[in-house]
């Protein structure tokens, strides 16, 4: 009887342990939460570039796309090969209706940027949208198909 009670108590404790999440943020537990890929690439950039990206985003919120583009071009002078800055530029050009420029920048990110993760998907989405606006349906289709390749699915853990 005592033995059975101990076993039941242990089962209860273990069940509680199994249900309790460790104190770790969801972002860290599952980096693929938003874009479905376990591999994501966030390039390292100087603080000045992050600051300019934030300023550009603030301009974007006010629909001041031209100012946002000028701000991102400042960032690009500091980090000319940064795919993140290039991607922001592509998105801003798309928002401003300059589809050819958006397409060029998105192509740069697609060709030279990360091949997995959020940035990879964003670049291909912008590419497909810009191609659609320019009537380049073949390029649009290829870009849409390529979005799936950005996802490196998590293997089941046992």
């Amino acid at each position: 009887m005592k033995k059975t009670g101990t076993i039941l108590l242990m089962i209860a404790v273990l069940t509680a342990c199994q249900r309790t999440k460790p104190n770790i943020d969801d972002d860290i537990r599952n980096p693929s939460n938003e874009h479905g890929s376990v591999i994501d690439v966030t390039p390292m950039l100087p603080d000045a570039v992050w600051s300019l990206i934030e300023q550009a985003e603030a301009h974007k919120k006010n629909a001041a796309f031209s100012q946002a583009i000028n701000t991102l071009q400042r960032a690009l002078r500091i980090a000319p090969h940064s795919p993140l800055v290039q991607q922001h530029l592509a998105e801003m050009f798309l928002a401003e209706g300059q589809y050819h420029e958006a397409l060029l920048w998105a192509e740069k990110v697609t060709n030279q940027g990360p091949q997995f993760g959020q940035l990879c998907q964003r670049a291909r989405r912008v590419l497909s949208l810009a191609a659609e606006m320019l009537g380049e349906t073949e390029k649009q289709g290829q870009a849409l198909d390529a979005i799936a390749s950005c996802v490196q699915e998590a293997k089941p853990r046992y």
Binding site: S66, I69, N70, Q73, E101, L104, W105, K108, N111
Partner: peptide, 20 residues
């Protein structure tokens, strides 16, 4: 040239992106 603005500070033109 980086960019050209009018007297009201509206950007009229900026250097074009070149393909690789």
């Amino acid at each position: 040239i980086r960019s050209v603005s009018d007297a009201d500070n509206q950007t009229l033109s900026r250097s074009k992106t070149t393909v690789n």
